[in-house]
Amino acid sequence: MTNAFNLTAPVDTLAMEFTREFDAPVEALFRAHADPELVKKWLGPRGLEMTIEEWDFKSHGGYRYAHKDPSGEYRFNGTFHTVRENEFVLQTFEFEGAPDMVNLEFMWFEDLGGGRSRLRGRSICPNTEARDALLSSGMEGGMTEGYEKLDELLGTL
């Protein structure tokens, strides 16, 4: 079963918000975000090769990774400010192709019972131009594909 990915960008805000439900327990959903070997299997759209240089998934940890396709390589980095197991992550996110455009991202991991969970997120951009650039970049399609891959992965855990 494929669950719907919902992305909104409320007018007159710097925020983007999303929700996505998964047919897997919250512990498995959280683990798929915490373990770099699992992250490489689902983060990003299909057709991209992912390499992780750093993935220190804990409060005050950091990350840096790259996605690569025939047209180039795209690097991202950030800091995990707060990580609470199976519950919450607060992190920064920066696309290195747009330096100094750092987003503040919140993710809530919700146990829905019956072996189901929900991921809810909010990303706050530094300005409306940065937010609109992300929205027009194909980000929504990439997130949709990534979460479809995550569904497939969660079915094997």
Score class of each variant (00 low, 15 high):
64 R>Y: 10
157 L>T: 06
40 K>W: 07
54 E>T: 15
2 T>W: 13
74 Y>L: 01
69 D>I: 07
128 T>G: 02
124 I>A: 12
134 L>Q: 13
52 I>E: 01
91 Q>V: 12
45 P>V: 09
145 E>H: 06
153 L>F: 00
17 E>H: 08
58 K>P: 03
7 L>C: 06
58 K>Y: 03
101 M>N: 13
125 C>K: 15
146 G>E: 00
43 L>D: 05
139 M>V: 06
4 A>Y: 08
10 P>Y: 04
36 P>A: 07
106 F>V: 14
95 F>N: 15
43 L>G: 04
38 L>E: 08
133 A>N: 14
157 L>M: 14
19 T>E: 03
103 N>P: 01
151 D>W: 00
19 T>S: 12
74 Y>A: 02
98 A>G: 06
141 G>E: 11
70 P>S: 05
31 R>M: 12
114 G>P: 00
114 G>F: 01
136 S>T: 15
38 L>Q: 11
7 L>F: 07
128 T>I: 15
135 L>D: 04
66 A>D: 03
139 M>N: 06
109 F>R: 03
63 Y>P: 02
74 Y>I: 05
154 L>V: 01
1 M>V: 13
21 E>T: 05
23 D>W: 04
110 E>C: 07
15 A>D: 14
22 F>K: 05
49 E>L: 09
136 S>F: 08
14 L>G: 08
119 L>C: 03
107 M>V: 15
61 G>W: 09
136 S>N: 12
61 G>I: 09
16 M>A: 14
71 S>I: 11
29 L>V: 11
22 F>W: 00
32 A>C: 06
122 R>T: 08
128 T>N: 04
111 D>P: 05
85 E>H: 10
94 E>R: 11
64 R>T: 04
92 T>A: 05
90 L>N: 15
56 D>L: 06
140 E>L: 11
111 D>G: 03
100 D>Y: 04
134 L>P: 02
129 E>A: 13
81 H>Q: 14
51 T>M: 06
4 A>C: 05
89 V>G: 01
26 V>H: 04
20 R>D: 00
1 M>R: 12
67 H>A: 10
157 L>I: 08
146 G>N: 05
8 T>M: 09
99 P>R: 05
137 S>W: 02
129 E>L: 14
94 E>K: 10
54 E>Y: 07
144 T>M: 13
45 P>A: 08
8 T>P: 08
